[in-house]
Amino acid sequence: MIWKELKDTLIFLKLKAADNKEVLQIMGDAMIQEGYGEEGFTEALLEREKDYPTGLDVDGIGVAIPHTDAEHVKKEGISIAVLDEPIVFDAMGEEDYQIPVKIVIMFTVAGKDKHIDRLLQILDMIKDEQILKGLLAAKNKEEVRTAIQKREKTC
């Protein structure tokens, strides 16, 4: 259950950043500080985002789901940021297409085979418009958890 994994220190509301690199830097460094990423996690994250962009347009809401390889991970975890203003990310699977992103969901997986399962879990979550709208409307960290929890309890 994603909502149970969310630590307050890894939830960012109204995150201000100049560009997507700064967003990834802030979130990646927090993942390291909280013991989820190895030293070099943030750099690996930035490099992977260049090669395999993670921006998605989900019914008009921009979402990015950055992650990196298990070799840079200590344990499984998740971080969510709702950005103050949309920030452009390159689109997943589409060259030369950019998406203004408002929600960033970063995750770590500790094992090569777990990557796809976690990605599918997050993709299933973000296709629910109520979750995305709940995240965008959240005024505090508990409301972020509640938006996700409602969906996960009905599945």
Rank of each mutant, 00 (worst) to 15 (best):
residue 61 I to W: 14
residue 37 G to N: 08
residue 93 G to H: 06
residue 55 G to S: 00
residue 44 A to S: 11
residue 98 Q to V: 11
residue 49 E to V: 01
residue 86 P to N: 05
residue 57 D to M: 03
residue 68 T to K: 05
residue 65 I to W: 09
residue 47 E to T: 07
residue 91 A to H: 05
residue 37 G to W: 12
residue 52 Y to H: 07
residue 52 Y to N: 04
residue 73 V to Q: 05
residue 84 D to N: 12
residue 69 D to L: 14
residue 102 K to Y: 00
residue 97 Y to S: 06
residue 76 E to H: 12
residue 56 L to Y: 07
residue 87 I to P: 00
residue 91 A to S: 09
residue 70 A to H: 12
residue 46 L to Y: 02
residue 55 G to D: 00
residue 64 A to N: 00
residue 70 A to T: 13
residue 92 M to E: 09
residue 68 T to D: 04
residue 53 P to V: 01
residue 56 L to E: 11
residue 73 V to S: 03
residue 93 G to M: 12
residue 71 E to H: 06
residue 40 G to C: 12
residue 90 D to E: 14
residue 39 E to Q: 14
residue 81 A to D: 11
residue 102 K to V: 01
residue 74 K to N: 15
residue 44 A to D: 03
residue 39 E to T: 14
residue 40 G to N: 12
residue 77 G to S: 11
residue 98 Q to F: 13
residue 62 G to L: 15
residue 75 K to C: 05
residue 74 K to E: 15
residue 55 G to M: 01
residue 53 P to H: 02
residue 75 K to P: 02
residue 49 E to L: 03
residue 59 D to R: 07
residue 49 E to K: 01
residue 39 E to W: 14
residue 81 A to K: 10
residue 96 D to Y: 05
residue 51 D to G: 12
residue 40 G to T: 11
residue 102 K to A: 04
residue 99 I to Q: 03
residue 60 G to C: 13
residue 80 I to A: 11
residue 102 K to R: 09
residue 52 Y to I: 08
residue 53 P to Q: 02
residue 87 I to A: 01
residue 53 P to L: 02
residue 70 A to E: 13
residue 50 K to M: 04
residue 102 K to D: 05
residue 42 T to P: 07
residue 72 H to W: 15
residue 68 T to A: 06
residue 61 I to V: 15
residue 82 V to Y: 02
residue 84 D to I: 04
residue 83 L to F: 02
residue 81 A to Q: 10
residue 76 E to A: 15
residue 91 A to F: 03
residue 89 F to E: 01
residue 50 K to L: 07
residue 63 V to T: 12
residue 58 V to S: 09
residue 44 A to P: 01
residue 71 E to K: 12
residue 66 P to Y: 03
residue 76 E to R: 14
residue 97 Y to P: 00
residue 85 E to A: 14
residue 100 P to H: 09
residue 44 A to K: 03
residue 103 I to L: 11
residue 78 I to G: 08
residue 37 G to Y: 09
residue 99 I to T: 08
residue 41 F to V: 07
residue 100 P to K: 11
residue 96 D to C: 01
residue 80 I to L: 10
residue 69 D to Q: 15
residue 102 K to P: 00
residue 75 K to H: 05
residue 89 F to R: 03
residue 66 P to L: 08
residue 57 D to A: 05
residue 41 F to M: 05
residue 90 D to L: 11
residue 80 I to D: 12
residue 84 D to P: 05
residue 91 A to K: 07
residue 43 E to S: 09
residue 49 E to I: 02
residue 41 F to E: 05
residue 66 P to D: 06
residue 91 A to C: 07
residue 77 G to N: 09
residue 93 G to N: 08
residue 89 F to D: 00
residue 68 T to P: 06
residue 94 E to Q: 12
residue 77 G to C: 13
residue 57 D to N: 15
residue 43 E to I: 02
residue 95 E to M: 11
residue 90 D to Y: 13
residue 70 A to C: 10
residue 76 E to T: 14
residue 103 I to A: 12
residue 87 I to Y: 00
residue 90 D to S: 14
residue 68 T to C: 06
residue 90 D to P: 05
residue 58 V to Y: 11
residue 48 R to Q: 02
residue 55 G to T: 00
residue 43 E to G: 07
residue 61 I to M: 14
residue 62 G to D: 13
residue 83 L to Q: 00
residue 84 D to Q: 10
residue 102 K to H: 04
residue 65 I to K: 06
residue 63 V to Q: 13
residue 63 V to G: 12
residue 100 P to C: 10
residue 44 A to W: 04
residue 95 E to G: 13
residue 71 E to G: 06
residue 55 G to V: 00
residue 47 E to M: 06
